[in-house]
Design a binder for these strands. Structure first.
Length: 741
DNA sequence: AGCGTACGAATTTTT
DNA sequence: TTCGTACGCT
């Protein structure tokens, strides 16, 4: 039972929050600044509507972008309203659309037992298409093609639509790839992530009956992080909302950091146009940070031209200035951070989990991680490789996928020789050819291998694989997911192969597989009915959940993550690292000539700053080696936007490139942490190369270009040059025929 | 089929 | 620099 009385629901809220919560029916736009209690308002509003009898739980649809946000919302609503909570639909765009398509997709030709392809699977298909169409991967990288197709789907463009608007050679190539890619998905009985949304919109547009049913059902619509919505998601939401117009959206254009994925924060700003009768509430009171942090954040973000004016404030006036530290190189930067953390824990009695270290790109994490390890500071990295993306997990899941949907030939190809059982590429392509001839799926061909024309050895290898498949298929009709998974692991020989390998890696893989079994058990235990326990439901969860929820909150460890991953989180002590021109903002954004790119970097900076509960540090390095190239960077332009009295330079005398004594550096480490003289010598050597960043050079075959970087010295010295016609090349100076212009 | 090597690419990544 | 992949050899 809910233990919160209606009165206390309101009294714990500030005036603006109350205004949002108590708004009755009709559209509502909530500008919710960082740390302004957005989820609270959303959940309380839902509770309020139910209490007032304005809405029934089954009429509520709440959409988020991440599973984490969805789960949090579910929990918090349940705490407020009690039992009725699970009759609401609360989930991510993708999971909700999957559910709708599962129920009604057949009307537009989406089969009931579709599987969801992840990026790996997509890439496999793209490569197949490249092979068929003889497209040169050099000219259009498969990943790029995938991106462009994804963008197209986010814009609701079909292959035909896309072909009409394709202009550049790259787009023309994509226009050739896209229809075949789509055909292959279909042949596999698969949808990709973007299809889930796009097909649902197509369904709504195709069937007034289906749309009408959902409109009737979901009379109260809530959308979280509305600034991150893309065109397809916008259509999805708008179509449902247009009937009753009870749509409540929450967002913050200043925290829009996913433009590169199709998010369009203009849709948030456009809400008042779409719903002229909308009530608008701004939540500007912040409950997370001291005033100095909010001021710092404001001075950065207010430089953006495209934004809705708003400013966070707090009752916690004052607060410490932001500490800035410029190290000689990234190792010294890491050492500084480690020292602060150790002091904080030892002297001030803080916990490791109070600290977060944020960086712009994952490549920065290695040095930080190494130092944490050396210093014995417990840490966890957020992001990294996702559990379900690990090879061994994907392998086992691929078995399950094939058992569920035998047409999934991408899955079948993955497992047919995993573990190796003597079925090579030649055999597979022969089987594929025969399957195509007979118009059957690869799995059917494998099962009918006795009628295939194959060399005896291959024949018997495929036959024994087919027998394994048959056995598992029979089993899949009889037992639950956990039992089936266990059978797959054993009968496929996967476990045996790993046991025999007996290396550190194979043991980790075995552990992961066991982890998978506990995941299936947990899945079955949590399900509410048989349908919820089904293989279908499990596979859907696997595809739509990226990480096993190992959120051990009491894990006392420093958190390392990208700025993107930090959105929505908060930490008492925050380090923003790499605050340098070229790193943050990234060179690409700074040079692109498109101010919008820089504005997105700035928003990212804003997001980082506003994570802070107490103390923020900006750290930077004078020289930084990234991707094998050393660059000498100036402090980030974002720091220049901040008034000096909000910043405090930390004395750098206590740590130089040479590690402090107490850190007991090993001899081998000395090479990784060169003393200042060495760095200087390297810098001088660099000058000897004879080229500097920005020089114009001429190459006999590539033409004229601009020097982006140099590395090394003497014979091996390399130079990175951007040739406008060719692209960027890294050349060995001694061999490249270069002339300086 | 399995291994070794050479080459290329490296923002950010909710699903 | 480091990781992953593709290709070619045995």
């Amino acid at each position: 039972m809910p233990n919160t009385s209606p009165e206390s629901i309101l009294t714990s809220l500030n005036a603006c929050q109350q205004e949002a919560v108590t708004h009755g029916v009709g559209p509502l736009l909530i500008f919710a600044g960082a740390g302004s209690g957005k989820t609270r308002v959303l959940t309380h509003r839902i509770a309020h509507l139910l209490r007032e009898g304005l809405a029934y739980p089954e009429q509520v649809l709440a959409v988020t972008f991440t599973n984490k946000a969805a789960n949090e919302m579910k929990e918090r609503i349940a705490r407020l309203v009690g039992r009725g909570a699970h009759r609401m639909w609360v989930g991510t765009f993708h999971s909700l659309c999957a559910r709708i398509l599962r129920d009604d997709g057949e009307r537009i030709g989406v089969r009931k037992n579709f599987v969801i392809f992840d990026t790996d699977d997509q890439l496999t298909i793209i490569n197949d298409v490249y092979g068929d169409l003889k497209i040169d991967p050099q000219m259009l990288k498969p990943n790029m093609a995938l991106n462009l197709i994804s963008n197209a789907k986010n814009e609701l463009l079909t292959p035909d639509d896309y072909a009409k608007i394709a202009r550049s050679p790259k787009e023309k190539a994509v226009a050739r790839v896209y229809p075949d890619y789509q055909a292959r998905l279909e042949a596999n009985g698969a949808l990709d992530f973007d299809d889930l949304i796009m097909k649902t919109v197509v369904l709504f547009r195709a069937s007034a009956e289906v749309l009408g049913a959902y409109q009737e059902r979901f009379r109260f619509l809530f959308v979280d992080e509305y600034q991150d919505i893309n065109q397809a998601q916008y259509q999805f939401v708008s179509l449902i909302a247009q009937q009753y117009r009870n749509i409540c959206v929450v967002g913050d254009d200043d925290q829009s950091i996913y433009t590169w994925r199709g998010a369009d924060s203009k849709l948030l700003l456009q809400f008042e146009h779409d719903y002229p009768e909308a009530k608008v509430v701004k939540l500007e009171q912040n409950y997370r940070s001291p005033q100095t942090i909010l001021d710092t954040a404001y001075h950065v973000i207010c430089q953006n031209r495209v934004r809705k004016e708003k400013r966070l404030w707090t009752e916690r006036s004052g607060g410490p200035p932001v500490k800035c530290y410029r190290a000689n190189d990234e190792h010294a930067e890491a050492a500084f951070i480690a020292r602060i953390i150790r002091d904080g824990v030892r002297v001030q009695g803080r916990n490791y989990k109070d600290y977060a270290i944020l960086y712009r790109i994952n490549a920065q994490s290695r040095v930080l991680e190494t130092l944490m390890l050396n210093q014995g500071i417990p840490y966890r990295i957020v992001g990294g490789q996702k559990f379900f993306a690990r090879k061994e997990i994907k392998d086992i899941v691929s078995y399950l996928r094939v058992l569920y949907n035998p047409d999934d030939s991408v899955g079948l190809r993955r497992i047919i020789n995993t573990p190796t059982r003597g079925i090579g590429a030649t055999t597979v392509s022969k089987l594929e050819g025969m399957a195509a001839e007979r118009g059957i799926s690869l799995t059917q061909m494998v099962l009918a291998v006795e009628h295939a024309d194959l060399p005896a050895r291959a024949q018997s290898a495929v036959l024994s694989f087919a027998q394994v498949l048959v056995r598992l298929m029979e089993l899949s009709a009889q037992v639950g997911v956990t039992e089936l998974t266990r059978a797959v692991i054993e009968e496929s020989g996967y476990e045996r192969a790993l046991l025999e390998e007996n290396t550190i890696q194979s043991r980790t893989r075995l552990e992961n597989i066991r982890e998978l079994l506990s995941a299936t058990q947990e899945f079955e235990a949590e399900a509410e009915d048989d349908e919820g326990r089904s293989l279908r439901a499990f596979l859907e969860q696997v595809s739509l959940i990226t990480e096993i929820d190992t959120a051990k909150n009491d894990d006392n460890a420093v958190t390392l993550m990208t700025l993107h991953a930090a959105k929505g989180l908060e930490f008492a002590q925050v380090f923003m690292t790499g605050m340098e021109e070229g790193v943050f903002p990234m060179a690409r954004a700074a040079m692109s000539g498109n101010p919008a790119d820089l504005e997105e970097e700035r928003r990212l900076c804003y997001v980082g700053i506003t994570r802070t509960g107490e103390q923020l540090y900006f750290t930077m390095a004078s020289s930084r080696t990234l991707f094998g190239a050393t660059t000498y960077n100036n402090p980030s332009r974002f720091l220049r936007d901040i008034p000096e009295d909000l910043l405090e330079n930390v004395d750098s005398s206590f740590t130089v490139a040479r590690p402090p004594r107490e850190m007991s550096w090993e001899a081998s480490d000395a090479q990784q942490h060169p003393a200042a003289e060495v760095i200087l010598a390297q810098a001088v050597a660099r000058l000897d190369v004879g080229y500097r960043t920005g020089d114009r050079v001429r190459h006999t075959t590539f033409g004229d270009g601009i020097v982006l970087a140099t590395q090394g010295s003497g014979e091996q010295a390399k130079i990175t040059v951007n040739f406008p016609r060719i692209g960027t090349k890294t050349l060995v100076i001694a061999y490249a025929q270069l002339t300086k212009l």
